[in-house]
């Protein structure tokens, strides 16, 4: 069954059809939430909330990119979580052991297909990027996540966050500049292949 047929069935209340869509998009939604929120558990909660909300409001979907429509629900869920978090104490970025020590090489990043060196480099890069993403204002972070991690084009991003194209371009440019500045701050902590121009001696 193709996506359109599944969507129509789900709109008629067919939960099984919706679950097939959820399985197809859950990784993308989870990764988006993870990059915006910077926390596995919160990202999982936001993804689940987004899918529940999507199912309940599926009748409001009137065509167009279903991926963009789902991404809108998950970014909304992330914004809700960020607002809640703004009223609470901050959540640590790194996973912690039972003794509240940060994990040196957390299992949550492990990918069995990588060599230990590759894994370590990826972890360092991910740590640095996630740290820099966290420093961005939420609006900038969302745009850069949608553009450079989910690889949406500008029109799709505008549809997801209901923002004019000019604003998208402006936010994305400034977000990239800030990320560059932040990543330069990591200097030689980044693996050589990932260093920016100055750290590479160019």
């Amino acid at each position: 069954m193709d996506e359109t047929a599944l969507i129509r069935a789900a709109q008629r209340g067919d939960l099984e059809a919706f679950n097939r869509l959820a399985l197809a998009y859950q990784d993308m939604l989870f990764n988006t939430a993870l990059r915006i929120l910077g926390d596995d558990d919160l990202a999982a909660d936001a993804t689940q909330e987004a899918l529940i909300s999507a199912f309940r409001s599926l009748t409001s979907y009137r065509g167009g990119s279903f991926k963009a429509w789902l991404l809108r629900t998950v970014t909304n869920a992330c914004y809700d979580e960020l607002r809640r978090r703004g009223r609470r104490s901050t959540v640590p970025l790194e996973p912690a052991t039972r003794d509240d020590d940060e994990m040196e090489s957390p299992r949550w990043l492990a990918d069995p297909s990588m060599t230990p060196e590759q894994r370590m480099e990826t972890e360092e890069l991910e740590h640095a990027i996630q740290h820099c993403l966290e420093d961005l204002p939420p609006d900038f972070r969302t745009v850069v996540v949608l553009a450079d991690i989910q690889e949406l084009d500008y029109r799709e991003i505008a549809a997801v966050i209901h923002t004019p194209l000019g604003t998208i371009k402006s936010r994305l440019a400034r977000a990239r500049l800030r990320l560059r500045d932040c990543l330069q701050g990591f200097g030689e902590l980044l693996p050589a292949a990932f260093r920016l121009r100055e750290e590479r001696g160019l």
């Binding site: 989870f30 990764n31 993870l34 529940i52 890069l125 991910e126 991690i149």
Partner: peptide, 16 residues
């Protein structure tokens, strides 16, 4: 660099 970030798998299925 951003595009080279690994796509993480969802920790569990989010079916309803």
């Amino acid at each position: 660099l951003l595009r080279r970030l690994p796509m993480r798998r969802a920790p569990h299925n989010f079916t309803l």
